[in-house]
Structure formats: C-alpha cells, structure tokens
Nucleic acid binder design. Structure first.
Lengths: 133, 133
DNA sequence: CTGCATCCTGGGCGATACTG
DNA sequence: CAGTATCGCCCAGGATGCAG
C-alpha cells in the first residue's frame, strides 16, 4: 500500500490507491461522526472525567447528546465506562489505549485550526472588502 | 500554550488548556464540516483533478454537493480553482500549499481507520478483544 | 462540462421532563 | 448524579432540472 508516494498523481487506472485511502478516512470519520465526539476525546485526553464534568467542560453539549455519544463511543471501543460509586451514582469515562492513538492526530487538528484562524483573519483584513456569498 | 503536557490531567482551574484545545479543534472541524470535504482533500492530495473527475472518484457525492463544498473550500483557502479551457469549459481543482499541511493528518486518519476496521471485526467475531485500560 | 435553483426527506440535535 | 423519553425544529444532503 505504501509503494505509492503521498503526492504522486494517481491517474487513469491507478485508481485504487485513491479510493482505498478515501474509504479508510471515511471509516474513521464514520466513527467520529457528529458534532461532539472529537471534542469529547480531546477533553478526555487531558484525563478521566465524570459524566457531569464532561457536560460542563464541553461547551454547549446537551445531556441527551452526551449520553448518546458516550454510548456510541463505548461500542466503538473509544472510551471505557467505569461506575465509581453507586449511591449517589458516579461514572467515570476514560479513553481506551487504542483511542489514545487518536490524540496526536487531534492535537495536529488543533494546531491547524489555530493557524487557520489566523490565516482567515489576515485574509479579511488584507482584502479590499469583498462581499462573500 | 505548550507548557501543558499532552496527557497531564487538567483539574480544577487548569481549565483553559482543555477548552482552548477543544476550541481549536472545533475551528478545524468547522472548516472540514459535512460529509465530503475530507474525502475531497484526500483525493486532491493525489493530484489535481477536474470537477467531473472528482465527481466520479468521490463515491456517492452529488453534483450539487460537490459544487457547494468546493466553493466553500475555496473561500476557506483550501483549494485553488483554475479554469483550464473555455470551450468546452474545464475547471481544475488543486490543494493550496496551506491545505497540504492537512495531508499528513488525513493520512493518519486513514491509517487509524484501517486499524479500527480490523479491531471492530475482531470484536464482532467474538475473538478475545484486546484488554483496554 | 461546470454549476446553480428547487423541491423534499431523514435524522441530527436541542429543550424539557422524567426515572433510578 | 447518570441516563431515558418525548417532541419538534431545522438543515445537510439527495434527486432532478435548467443555464452558461
């Protein structure tokens, strides 16, 4: 699979390298779908959190969505759910070792986001006010 | 911003590192929103493509969505649009240098997706899944 | 060929109330 | 505190048709 250069053009019938890569990325984004999962992973990357803590620290998420996302992520082996105490109930969530592999990627995403914000700001300041659709 | 260890727990008032990172990732995912942009970038990472080529190679995308995504990505300086010929009209799309920075990340995403697919298949087959955490 | 307008549907997601 | 149930909005995105 890796005898293909990253930036080599893929013309004609050298089709499969492209589509395989696209499919693989699709698999990942399928698991990371929705508005919240990446943020949750990013947060849990800083350490174990309880349900209510995530609710507070992930700005804007509702309880329903948090439950749903967490359950989904558990099924996909991204997070581990641990009942800490029964009365009152407390549940802790942490990343699986396997999901930890995503952290460097997500970190890169964060860095790019920071850079992008600057680039766009420059564009807006620099350009002679063009009306954007 | 980087005096924070990647895996250091962020408790109590060490709140801002978490939320800043989350916000930055959010910025990126905001730009990469929707079902198609990452796939398009991944494809264009293999080389310049024409509109109709992208339409064929990105499995499942409709013409409307492709136009929309491409326009959006152009505004965000992710792709460059070049009119190749007028009669009949032909348009080539390529990644900006700046968007090329995303390729390694997307490549990592692809690798993780491949791995994940295997893990999930193992899990479904009931094979002893690796012990997490 | 490239790309826009229109119509339409599914489901993602928010708000709120409720259970254990 | 953790999680579910219900209701409903809204918009991403599919299908189709038209225009330059």
């Amino acid at each position: 699979m890796e005898n293909q250069q990253d930036n080599a053009p893929c013309v004609g019938h050298d089709f499969s390298a492209c589509s395989k890569r696209i499919a693989a990325v699709h698999d990942t984004m399928d698991v990371l779908n929705g508005k919240w999962k990446i943020a949750i992973i990013s947060l849990l990357g800083f350490g174990t959190r309880r349900y209510s803590e995530i609710l507070k620290e992930v700005e804007g998420i509702s309880g329903k969505m948090l439950s749903r996302e967490l359950k989904d992520m558990e099924l996909n082996l991204l997070v581990k759910r641990t009942v800490v105490s029964e009365q009152p109930i407390a549940v802790a969530y942490s990343l699986t070792d396997y999901c930890v592999d995503l952290l460097p990627i997500i970190h890169s995403l964060a860095e790019w986001g920071t850079k992008h914000r600057q680039v766009i700001v420059q564009q807006i300041k620099g350009e002679p006010v063009l009306e954007m659709g």
